[in-house]
């Protein structure tokens, strides 16, 4: 593990030359994404470019075909189940859907990781849960069931659940999609303040350029399985690169093709394609 020895202690998550494919389709084609401890790092890119895949690699849910995924110096794909679970206690992932347990109330959802991983007495557990719910502004909703929450509320509950064990790393998968501007602002502010107050390293995956740039310290732009631009949000927004401009300005076609890889259109229509 010579690569581990030479690592920069400031880098919490290091993704080096990672390739990943599903079947014949390669989804990540050699990407490098170092993420600094204590920062908010944005990963932006179009739908289907492999952002969620990247988070799943960091979380150890899938293994890369090639390259290294290091979290806190540990190579995630090489960990055994116990070590991986130990590492996951220190990281949290906010799923696109929130993934709240539908058979548990808001309170019990937030209490779930504590009940599973600690033996805290009920009174302390209650205090911790209520503090986290207060942080996301939903202390009053603790009795509700997930089916009674709006999308924005559900995401805030999921956020409270994610931070209840005080992780070192949070990965947010599309925290803004499907929310109204006010809820977007609330979530953005929460992400920033969690980062500043608790020192949590955050990875924000999103295609919401404005919100994401506002709260992040550093941004990566993905397209077609590669990193096509990086820098501080200001740098990225000023970038002259064709790739970056296409994404930032929301142009439908450009260096990143609009079409899913396909055979020539005429061949397909005339039935000549295989």
């Amino acid at each position: 593990m010579s690569a581990t020895a030479s690592r920069d202690p400031d880098i919490l998550v290091d993704i080096r030359d990672v390739h990943f494919s599903r079947g014949d389709r390669s989804i990540l084609k050699g990407i490098n994404v170092p993420i600094r401890r204590g920062s908010v790092t944005a990963i932006m890119g179009g739908s289907g470019c492999g952002k969620t895949t990247l988070l799943n690699l960091i979380g150890g849910r899938i293994k890369p075909n090639r390259g290294q995924v290091l979290v806190d110096g540990q190579s995630v794909p090489d960990l055994d189940t116990d070590a991986l679970y130990e590492l996951r206690k220190r990281m949290a992932m906010l799923f696109q859907s929130g993934a709240l347990f539908t058979d548990l109330s808001v309170f019990e959802n937030v209490a779930f990781p504590i009940r599973e991983h600690t033996k805290l007495p009920e009174s302390i557990l209650r205090t911790v849960v209520l503090m986290k719910l207060e942080t996301v502004g939903l202390r009053g909703a603790r009795e509700l069931m997930p089916s009674e929450l709006s999308g924005g509320m559900a995401r805030r509950v999921a956020l409270a659940r994610a931070i209840v064990l005080e992780p070192t790393l949070i990965m947010y998968d599309e925290p803004f999609t499907g929310l109204d501007p006010i809820s977007k602002g609330v979530i953005a502010k929460l992400i920033r303040s969690l980062n500043e107050n608790l020192g949590i390293t955050s990875i924000v995956v999103s295609h919401d350029v404005a919100e994401t740039c506002q709260i992040s310290d550093y941004a990566y732009l993905m397209g077609d399985g590669r990193i096509i631009g990086e820098g501080t949000p200001a740098e990225v927004q000023q970038s002259k690169s064709e790739f970056v401009r296409q994404f930032m300005d929301g142009l439908p076609d450009g260096p990143v093709p609009y079409q899913h890889p396909s055979s020539p259109y005429v061949d397909d229509l005339t039935g000549r394609s295989p």
Partner: peptide, 22 residues
């Protein structure tokens, strides 16, 4: 099946809780 479809099982795994035993 619905817990799987709504990512509840995946979420549990990411919280370091084994969905098989839990």
């Amino acid at each position: 099946g619905l817990m799987k479809a709504t990512e509840q099982l995946a979420g549990m795994e990411m919280m370091a809780v084994n969905p098989i035993t839990r």
